[in-house]
């Protein structure tokens, strides 16, 4: 059976889903452009780079348990 992950791990793992999926109507626009990229694309790339950092933190939490 799946060992229940800690609450903090679950909350942190929900961040990528919230940032890139559920909140789509808040950031799906072209303006303002960021470094020349449309806003929605820049937003996704930002979270894409951040997600491994978040999951690395979760990895640390789960390993210590």
């Amino acid at each position: 059976m799946l060992k229940k992950p800690s609450t903090l791990s679950v909350l942190l793992s929900l961040v990528p889903f919230t940032a890139m999926c559920f909140t789509v109507s808040l950031w799906d626009r072209v303006e303002p452009t960021v470094l020349g990229l449309p806003f929605n694309l820049a937003w996704i790339l930002f979270w894409l780079v951040l997600t491994p950092g978040i999951m690395w933190t979760v990895y640390g939490i789960e390993r210590r348990r």
């Binding site: 799946l2 992950p5 990528p16 889903f17 929605n40 996704i44 979270w47 894409l48 979760v58 990895y59």
Partner: peptide, 24 residues
């Protein structure tokens, strides 16, 4: 156009699920 962005995201969020389920 725009709807294509979903590809970049599910490949990432899918890994979050694999993180928890994969080792088991």
């Amino acid at each position: 156009g725009g709807p294509t962005l979903y590809v970049l995201i599910y490949l990432t969020t899918g890994q979050v699920l694999i993180f928890f389920l994969g080792p088991l």
